[in-house]
Nucleic acid binder design. Structure first.
Lengths: 189, 189
DNA sequence: GTCTATATTTTGATAGAC
DNA sequence: GTCTATCAAAATATAGAC
């Protein structure tokens, strides 16, 4: 396990505070105070508050993009690709509980990187939609309300960061399996 | 249709801005500017920024509570109660697109009303969970992963405010029916 | 690498004229 | 009901000592 330097520590603690109150409501004094130093000292390690947000969001967004690229080129069925997507979200969310909050709620405060972020996001949704579409074409998935199915699955997956921390004894693989089952087969007996 | 007075207009426009940037990032000057007046003039109609947030969130939270109370006392099957919950979310979300953003993302900035809000929220989730539980007991719903089923449905329903605006020609009843079908029966063919 | 001191802007909110 | 003027506090960030 690699050692965490001060900059990484600042970003990690910032992400935690951003999850609790949102990016805009967290001050550099709040952040410094959480680290036991003065606000001015932060600037020896980071360029700006903006820059912290960028570090948090962009790295996670790129993880999703890379994960989706791997899934796309696999030769699995559409349903299996969906299961891989669920696993991707569970894995990344488990490892970035705090960062996922910023990704979901504070992306609009990105400035120079906003356009880049939005492109990654739209491309991801397009890839997701196309996998469902292929599943409809191959008769694996119901041929109705494509966008609504996408929205429903994506909403649940994007909210995982809120739910995972409430279940301490969570096995990521088991969660992914159970969640896949619910999303694909519903709750009906 | 009742006429909107200035206070109601302020709250409505504030909710829209809060959805775009979050409560903390919207200044009273932003809000005033959107209304074509000066920030100081706002205070002839409202007490504080806090008070605007409270007005937005609490009224919607109480709508959910009232809706859930009606559903609970009905004599419907558990599956039908779940369908009513879906309809409740679609209806309230359709009519409060902007307010739903604050309810979901800015509730932590409530101050005096925070405790009250959290009570409404927890009670709502408990009622929702109990309806699923009854469905399991009556053999309507799969007997597995109660909390995960609850989380999955609630995540989708709470995100409706993000999705509804993208579909202009939306019929709330049809949306509720289609969404119920997806949540209950899944996407599998 | 952290501190004190400080510059500059921006914030929510009030007083009082019209 | 809106304005101008203003306050006091809080914000991000920098300079320079240690």
């Amino acid at each position: 396990m690699q050692q965490e330097n001060r900059k990484e520590q600042i970003i990690r603690v910032a992400a935690k505070l951003f999850k609790e109150k949102g990016y805009s409501a967290v001050t550099m004094r709040d952040l410094a105070s959480s680290l036991g130093i003065k606000a001015a000292s932060l600037y020896n390690h980071i360029n700006s508050k903006q820059d912290i947000l960028k570090s948090i969001i962009i790295s996670i967004a790129e993880e999703f993009t890379e994960g989706m690229n791997v899934i796309q080129v696999s030769n699995n069925s559409s349903i299996d690709k969906l299961k891989q997507i669920v696993k991707l979200h569970v894995t990344i969310s488990s490892q970035n509980i705090y960062g996922m909050a910023s990704l979901n709620n504070d992306w609009m405060h990105l400035e120079e990187q906003l356009e880049y972020y939005l492109k990654l996001r739209y491309d991801y949704e397009d890839d997701f939609r196309n996998i469902i579409k292929q599943g409809i074409a191959s008769n694996e998935i119901k041929d109705e309300k494509l966008d609504l199915m996408l929205f429903s699955m994506l909403s649940t997956l994007r909210s995982l960061y809120l739910w995972i921390p409430k279940k301490e004894d969570l096995n990521p693989k088991e969660l992914a399996d159970n969640l896949s089952n619910i999303l694909i087969n519903g709750i009906n007996k």
